[in-house]
Write a protein that binds this DNA or RNA. Structure first.
Length: 474
DNA sequence: TCTCTGTTCGC
DNA sequence: CGAACAGAG
């Protein structure tokens, strides 16, 4: 009897899922499968925080499938071998999935599709993750975009308009289910439960994603343009991990914003600024597709000559940055928020990344690696774009060498020090005037909090000099 | 999605 | 003397 394997990867939802829609349209039983195959993602195997989230997301998906008379079959091993084994066991004659965009996974999926077709198996891939496929958008001369603003203008002409499918009420089951592992057997959670704190603020899974979107549209979108920059406020959507795992799709987010905008509940400027953030996500995938080397190498080749400091000589500085012990309050607050919650506010991501790459002159790849392990929303496209942007070697390079001043940023975006007080409690008693730069208190600076790891003025000049030397060499 | 400096303006 | 602004990198 014929059946269809529905291969879940990072599209862990039942609404707005084109592969699921296609599977149902075939009218045969559907066998949902998740295959744990981290080796295929080398060198970017999922980090520890991301694996923790995945555990919870798979658990939610399995429950959502069970309610619909279905079942998530969990396996481990090379994806093609596992799919072929399942085909043998179930007699399935089709495999459907939604696309991923990481270079290593694109290569794997291409091989799998060819192998399945050679065996006479229908193999179909769909778009669940993007407004617009990276290869469907180009400059006037047919080249990929490297600057955000023109990319955004082009994207606006190609927004999706197909209707969004709701989650089905039932999913037809096979007469017999193949064997599978329990989610626990994948050992995705850390041995020491350092991720416990994460789930006080996060609800992985489709229901959590939809609830987050709804509450953001209701009371976060209004005033978003300004509130999004203040890390002490809940002024951002916090949808990033849900989007990364496909617990919600960008089309669903777009549709919800458009509805709120049309209803007049939300000022145009706030809707526009939020949609631009989704535009940056699309841009990141566009760049990763067209420049697959960029997770490791600068997009701007001139940066090969950038005299970064060798990290092996400065392990202690990297370690202090990772642990939130740089002595610069806004930076330490961000790094500790990351450690405690698996997430960091985007404004603060830019500040901590600028300190590492500019003031400490440590290569951006080391920061990207740390984020990769610590973020629940770790995403190769977004992480690469963000780090290259801050380092100055990526797309949308400014005509100047951008160096954030963490004290000014802190005064501007955390004026009352609420964010710092929350994550750096040893500074909680300082005045609003002193909390952004406690070393200015001299002998009165709080004990137990380190002095700044670098002189911000001198290290700024050092970075500018390094940049000038790079340009002279190029 | 920036910072620094110098200038001007208002108090 | 600080706020506001322009220009440069």
């Amino acid at each position: 009897m014929s059946a269809c394997l529905l291969w879940f990867r990072r599209d862990l939802r039942l609404s707005d899922n084109p592969a699921l829609t296609a599977a149902l349209a075939r009218g045969t039983p559907v066998i949902p499968v998740y295959i744990h195959d981290p080796e295929a993602e080398r060198p970017w195997t999922p980090g520890a925080a991301s694996r923790s989230w995945l555990h919870h997301s798979l658990t939610a998906l399995a429950a959502d499938l069970a309610v619909r008379g279905s079942c998530l079959i969990v396996r481990r091993g090379p994806a093609l071998d596992t799919l072929q084994a399942l085909i043998g066991e179930t007699g399935a004659n089709a495999v459907l999935w939604n696309r991923l965009y990481e270079p290593a996974l694109v290569a794997r999926d291409t091989r799998i599709k060819a192998a399945l077709k050679r065996d006479g198996i229908e193999a179909g891939s769909h778009n669940a993750a993007l407004w617009c496929e990276p290869w469907q958008i180009a400059t006037g001369s047919g080249a990929p975009f490297k600057v955000f603003t023109p990319f955004w203008r082009a994207l606006a002409t190609r927004l999706p308009d197909a209707p969004i499918q709701p989650a089905p009420e039932r999913i037809p089951a096979p007469r017999e289910w193949p064997a599978g592992l329990s989610i626990d057997e994948l050992a995705l959670r850390p041995q020491l439960a350092w991720d416990q704190g994460f789930y006080a603020i996060w609800q992985p899974g489709e229901a959590g994603a939809l609830a987050r979107l709804a509450s953001f549209i209701d009371d976060g979108l209004h005033g978003y343009r300004d509130a999004r920059d203040r890390p002490a406020e809940g002024g951002v959507s916090r949808l990033s991990p849900h989007l990364h795992f496909g617990e919600i799709g960008p089309r669903q987010v777009l549709r919800a914003v458009q509805r709120a905008r049309a209803g007049g509940e939300v000022p145009e400027r706030d809707a526009e600024h939020f949609l631009r953030e989704l535009g940056w996500r699309e841009f990141a995938h566009h760049l990763l597709h067209h420049f697959p080397e960029t997770p490791d190498a600068p997009l701007n080749p001139g940066f090969a000559a950038m005299p970064w400091r060798a990290v092996r000589d400065h392990e202690a500085e990297l370690r202090a940055w990772q642990r939130g012990r740089t002595g610069i309050p806004i930076v330490d607050a961000g790094m500790r928020e990351l450690w405690a919650t698996g997430w960091m506010h985007n404004r603060v991501r830019m500040i901590v990344a600028s300190l590492l790459t500019k003031n400490l002159l440590i290569p951006w790849q080391h920061g990207a690696r740390w984020f990769w392990d610590a973020l629940v929303d770790a995403d190769l496209a977004n992480n690469t774009l963000g780090w290259q942007w801050v380092a100055g070697c990526g797309a949308d390079a400014a005509p100047y060498f951008r160096i954030f001043n963490p004290v000014l940023q802190s005064r501007k975006f955390d004026a009352t020090g609420r964010y710092i007080r929350r994550w750096v409690p040893e500074l909680a008693d300082l005045s609003d005037a002193a909390i952004h730069a406690p070393w200015t208190l001299g002998a009165d600076a709080p004990r137990g909090y380190p002095p700044p790891i670098v002189d911000l003025g001198a290290s700024r000049q050092r970075a500018l000099d390094a940049y000038a030397r790079m340009r002279a060499a190029g």
